[in-house]
Simulated assay, not measured.
Amino acid sequence: MTRRTRVGALAAVVALVMASGCGGDDDGGDKTPIIGQPGKTVHIATAFDQPGFNLFARHHNRGFDMDIAFYLGEELGFTPKFQDVTHAGRERELQDGSADMVIATYSITPKRQQKVDFIGPYLMTSQGFLVRRDYNGIKKEKDIGGKTLCTVEGTTPARVRMPPSTVVNEVPDYSTCVSKLQGGGVDAVFSDEALLFGYVEQQKKSKVPLKVVPNVTMGLINRYGIGIPKGHRDDCKRLLKALRKYLVEEWSSDIKAQLPALVETYSGDWENRFKPDPQDLNTYSSCRV
């Protein structure tokens, strides 16, 4: 049985819960367009310290989230302008108007859909463990007991219930977690598997290389979406159409380019594990087309 089949029943239940708390097609009149006329600058909040998804270095943004933003900009005629955001501050950026859009490994959840609208998913991922390459203390889920983990505040992994003997440190960003891991301050970093593979690639030539423990996960499947302020129905539909096209045309090649460690670890199965079905967008998005 495939992973997508195993989570199919859960997806249907979650979709019903989400639909009750999101801005759907029956909302009132649409607000001032986010995208607007061709050439408009759209302010996109993203995390600048996530290799593989977005790493800001040498005055340049590079990563899978950036690939999506540039693709949407080309398809819909807007110019992305990026700004850094903490994981805990993503809803606030949209609600107070500081950002027009969030593309920042932003998992779609019913609680978040009460505050913002989502388009997606553009990636689905289990939650796993990043460890030092020479560390073999975690081979099964039961090995998590008694370990010291690091995760980031305001993220879905921070809400996963761990064994009582496990110590979980919450910090503002993943770079801090990775530093703690390489320095021996924690046994593992706990977060979305896909996100962790970016650090494997970034640190492969460092003095303390890293690895993701394969096939050891906890919590639910996370689905990354594009966040926008509530009430922008027309923008939501335009983004949804463009994102569905992206999944068919560019998704696989961009993952290969930005997250090669993910592809290598799950060779032969990585698309089934991480790529959403384009039809899933109508299940989890705050609008439908």
Score class of each variant (00 low, 15 high):
Pro172Trp: 03
Ile144Glu: 02
Tyr135Cys: 10
Leu149Met: 08
Arg133Ile: 09
Pro164Glu: 07
Lys142Gln: 15
Asn136Ile: 09
Ala158Leu: 07
Val152Leu: 05
Pro157Tyr: 02
Gln202Glu: 12
Val167Tyr: 09
Thr166Pro: 10
Val178Met: 07
Asn136Ser: 15
Thr166Leu: 09
Tyr174Met: 14
Pro172Phe: 03
Cys150Pro: 07
Glu141Asn: 06
Leu195Phe: 01
Ser165Leu: 13
Thr217Leu: 10
Phe197Gln: 10
Lys140Gly: 05
Pro163Ser: 00
Arg161Gln: 13
Ile144Ser: 03
Asn215Tyr: 15
Tyr199Gly: 03
Thr151Lys: 02
Lys211Trp: 04
Lys205Trp: 12
Arg159Phe: 03
Val213Gln: 01
Lys207Asp: 15
Val171Thr: 11
Thr156Gly: 01
Gln182Thr: 14
Thr176Glu: 04
Gly137Pro: 12
Lys139Leu: 11
Pro209Met: 04
Ala188Glu: 03
Gly183Leu: 08
Thr166Ser: 11
Lys207Gln: 13
Lys147Ser: 02
Asp187Val: 04
Thr166Cys: 13
Lys211Ala: 12
Thr151Trp: 00
Lys211His: 06
Val168Ile: 15
Leu149Arg: 04
Gly184Ile: 11
Arg159His: 11
Tyr135Phe: 15
Asn222Cys: 11
Lys180Gly: 02
Val213Met: 07
Glu193Val: 13
Leu220Met: 09
Thr217Phe: 14
Val186Pro: 00
Gly198Trp: 00
Gly184Phe: 09
Lys211Glu: 09
Gly225Gln: 05
Leu220Ser: 14
Val171Phe: 00
Gly145Asp: 13
Leu220Trp: 07
Lys205Met: 09
Lys180Ser: 12
Lys142His: 10
Met162Ser: 02
Phe190His: 12
Val171Pro: 01
Lys139Cys: 06
Asn215Thr: 07
Leu149Thr: 06
Gln203Gly: 00
Arg159Val: 09
Tyr135Trp: 15
Gln202Gly: 01
Lys140Ser: 14
Gly154Lys: 03
Ser175His: 10
Leu181Ile: 14
Gly219Trp: 01
Met218Ala: 14
Gly137Asp: 06
Asn222Gly: 13
Thr176Phe: 02
Gly185Pro: 01
